[in-house]
Simulated scan of single mutants.
Amino acid sequence: MSTTDSSEAQKQMIGERLYPLVSQMQPELAFATKITGMLLELDNTELLHLLESRESLEAKVEEAVAVLQARWTMHSEHVVTDQSKDPLTAAMLASVPPDKQKQIIGERLFPLISKICLEYAGKITGMMLEIDNLELLHLLESREFLEAKVKEAIAVLETHKH
């Protein structure tokens, strides 16, 4: 087995031990996976240290979350700018096949929700997509209505978390 193969095998084993620890700190599946991937870019020596030191791991996870939040903020501002040029209407939605309608709404909703609550953005977007499309369009149009619905969803998630 070459040194590269050995290093990759070690990285795989470290990743398998690291992910459960990261997911305890960041329960949102997409974020835990992304953060673990980001951490696995570090060299194996530093990764082994993170496995031994919860404090160091927490610091690196916080650093990764800050990077992700900065990326989402930049992405959200871009999407919101694009959206303000071309607001989604019921007529536009009706022109799209039903199986694509939720996807289009979700793509517009997620960045807005992530600005309000990054930690649960994926779960909350999924919860919201269970709502009728006309109500979802209203969520996209009204920041106040969206914030109220996100707060409701956070309360539900927090209740079921404990």
Rank of each mutant, 00 (worst) to 15 (best):
Ser114Glu: 15
Met25Leu: 14
Ala153Arg: 11
Glu77Ser: 13
Glu77Val: 04
Tyr120Arg: 08
Ala9Asn: 01
Gly15Met: 02
Cys117Leu: 12
Gln101Val: 11
Leu140Ser: 13
Glu52Val: 06
Leu29Ile: 10
Arg17Met: 11
Gln24Tyr: 09
Gly126Ala: 08
Val80Tyr: 04
Ala9Val: 06
Pro98Thr: 00
Ile124Ser: 00
Lys102Cys: 05
Met74Gln: 14
Asn44Cys: 03
Leu146Ile: 01
Ala64Leu: 11
Met38Val: 08
Ala9Thr: 05
Met127Thr: 11
Asn44Arg: 02
Glu158Trp: 01
Met38Tyr: 09
Ile116Arg: 00
Lys102Ser: 14
Asp5Trp: 12
Asp43His: 04
Gln83Phe: 15
Gly106Gln: 10
Lys85Gln: 08
Glu55Tyr: 00
Pro97Met: 08
Leu139Ile: 05
Lys11Ser: 13
Phe31Trp: 15
Ala121Trp: 15
Lys100Glu: 14
Leu40Gln: 14
Cys117Tyr: 12
Ala70Tyr: 08
Met92Arg: 09
Thr159Tyr: 15
Leu48Asp: 03
Met74Ile: 10
Glu158Gln: 14
Pro111Val: 11
Glu158Pro: 06
Leu48Trp: 02
Ile116Tyr: 07
Arg54Gly: 02
Ser84Trp: 13
His162Leu: 02
Leu51Arg: 07
Glu135Val: 12
Phe110Asn: 13
Leu88Val: 05
Asp99Ser: 11
Met128His: 10
Lys100Gln: 07
Gln101Ile: 02
Leu118Asn: 09
Phe145Arg: 08
Gly122Thr: 03
Ser95Phe: 01
Ser76Gly: 15
Tyr120Ser: 13
Cys117Phe: 08
Thr33Leu: 10
Ser84Val: 05
Gln69Asn: 10
Thr159Met: 08
Val156Ser: 02
Gln12Tyr: 03
Phe110Gln: 12
Leu39Arg: 07
Glu152Pro: 00
Gly15Ile: 09
Glu41Val: 12
Met74Thr: 14
Tyr120His: 05
Ser6His: 09
Lys161Ala: 15
Ile104Gln: 10
Val156Asn: 05
Phe110Asp: 10
Val61Met: 13
Lys102Met: 00
Pro87Ser: 10
Lys123Tyr: 14
Asp86Ile: 06
Asp43Gly: 10
Leu139Asn: 02
Ala90Ser: 06
Glu41Gln: 13
Gln101Tyr: 13
Ala90Gln: 14
Lys149Ser: 14
Leu50Lys: 05
Ser114Cys: 08
Pro111Gly: 10
Thr125Met: 04
Asn44Leu: 06
Glu107Asn: 04
Gln103Asp: 15
Met13Thr: 14
Glu41Asn: 11
Gln101Thr: 02
Gln69Pro: 01
Arg17Gln: 15
Glu119Pro: 00
Glu55Asn: 02
Asp82Pro: 03
Met1Asp: 07
Asp82Ser: 07
Ser23His: 09
Leu68Gln: 03
Ile35Asn: 09
